[in-house]
Amino acid sequence: MSATAETRPAPSPWEIRKATAQDWPAIWEILEPVIRAGETFTWDRDTTEAQARAKWFKTAPGQTFAAVGTGGSDGVVLGTGELHPNQDGGGSHVANAGYMVRDGYGGQGVARALCDYSLRAARAAGFRAMQFNAVVESNVRAVAAWQGMGFEIIGTVPEAFNHPRLGYVGLHVMYRRL
């Protein structure tokens, strides 16, 4: 085997692409249990499917995207993300994004791949930075993943999130320049 072949990374077991309307049923299968659990997103746990769809699907300069399995999980939507301006007007040059992964696929790099895709898409759309407004501090895996991708915790709002099991925990604001 050549040195080039030895150092070439293995192909991802998924591809990330813009989501389509046909992806919605699979995306809802991912969003609904995360929303209902109420442990990592600030959404109302009673959010309806129609409300979730209206909130999750974005239009330009934002977008909604999906990690779709290849190989053994061919065609299965493994995770989804959305990207949009963090604020309107004078704050519209900073992006915001969110990601959710299908149950059973956590810890396999899907969320990091979705984040990487969104960082590249945000740069291409002309955003100058990305900010996460509400990363639940008890979601240590996500906090570590985003820090590993260059995000810094620039502040924590104490007891800003009422976790269903842990009670009131902080919400981190995380930021990185593009």
Rank of each mutant, 00 (worst) to 15 (best):
T40K: 07
T40L: 08
F41W: 13
F41L: 15
F41R: 05
F41N: 10
T42G: 15
T42M: 06
T42C: 13
T42Y: 07
T42I: 10
W43N: 14
W43G: 11
D44G: 07
R45Q: 15
R45P: 11
R45D: 06
D46N: 15
D46T: 07
D46F: 00
T47Y: 10
T48Q: 11
T48A: 08
T48V: 00
T48D: 10
E49W: 10
A50T: 14
A50D: 14
A50I: 05
A50L: 05
A50S: 12
A50N: 09
A50V: 06
Q51W: 01
Q51D: 15
R53Y: 01
R53T: 00
R53W: 00
A54G: 15
A54R: 08
A54V: 02
K55F: 02
K55L: 02
K55P: 00
W56H: 07
W56C: 01
W56G: 08
W56Y: 07
F57M: 15
F57W: 07
F57V: 13
K58S: 04
K58G: 03
K58D: 05
K58Q: 15
T59C: 10
T59V: 06
A60F: 10
P61G: 11
P61Q: 09
P61W: 11
G62I: 03
Q63K: 03
Q63Y: 01
T64M: 01
T64D: 02
T64E: 00
F65H: 12
F65W: 07
A66Q: 14
A66R: 12
A66F: 12
A66D: 10
A66C: 12
A67M: 13
A67N: 08
A67C: 07
A67F: 14
V68N: 03
V68Q: 10
V68P: 09
G69V: 04
T70N: 06
T70M: 08
T70K: 08
T70R: 13
T70Q: 14
T70E: 05
G71Y: 11
G72Q: 13
S73V: 01
S73R: 11
S73I: 01
D74R: 13
G75T: 05
G75M: 00
G75D: 04
V76L: 09
V76F: 04
V76I: 11
V76Y: 04
V76W: 01
V76T: 13
V77W: 10
V77N: 12
V77P: 06
L78C: 10
L78W: 09
L78E: 04
L78A: 00
G79E: 04
G79Y: 09
G79C: 00
G79H: 02
T80N: 08
T80E: 09
T80L: 05
T80Q: 12
T80Y: 02
G81A: 04
E82C: 00
E82D: 12
E82Q: 13
E82H: 04
E82S: 12
E82L: 08
L83S: 03
L83Y: 06
L83R: 09
L83H: 03
